[in-house]
């Protein structure tokens, strides 16, 4: 299962980046980035997974004394939690700039934004 999740994560990164590279519409480009974002989250969580163990939450099911043998790595989960929240912030910024570009240039097609092209 963990190999499958890892492979899916890598596939999502590749698909998302392909979409982000080849599309010309800014909104489609940002959609590609969010797909790649989800892929990286999946890869990171899979790396922290240990087969046959359970979530890092102590309690009746996992007493603290045996926690070291029963739980999976909590650090990648904390990292991914941070990454998801920051990902929303990055997406919001990209969308705000995309709308700004639309408001000043009247287009979302990046091939028509030639000011920085040489």
């Amino acid at each position: 299962m963990v190999y499958l999740a890892l492979a899916t994560g890598f596939a999502l990164i590749l698909l998302g980046l392909y979409g982000a590279i080849t599309r010309r519409n800014l909104l489609r480009l940002i959609v590609g980035f969010t797909v790649a974002d989800t892929g990286t989250h999946l890869v990171m969580v899979s790396v922290g997974y240990l087969p046959g163990r359970t979530a890092p939450i102590l309690g009746a099911a996992v007493p603290p004394e045996v926690a070291a043998l029963r739980i999976i790595d909590p650090v990648p989960q904390a990292l991914v939690l941070t990454a998801i929240v920051i990902g929303l912030g990055v997406t919001a910024l990209m969308l705000a700039y995309a709308w700004r570009i639309y408001a000043t240039r009247g287009t979302l097609d990046i091939s028509r934004l030639r000011q920085l092209k040489w």
Binding site: P56, I57, L58, G59, P64, A67, I71, P74, Q77, A78, L81
Partner: peptide, 11 residues
């Protein structure tokens, strides 16, 4: 985690 912080959710 339990002795340091007392939290049940390690994350």
């Amino acid at each position: 985690t339990v002795t340091d912080t007392g939290a049940a959710n390690i994350v």
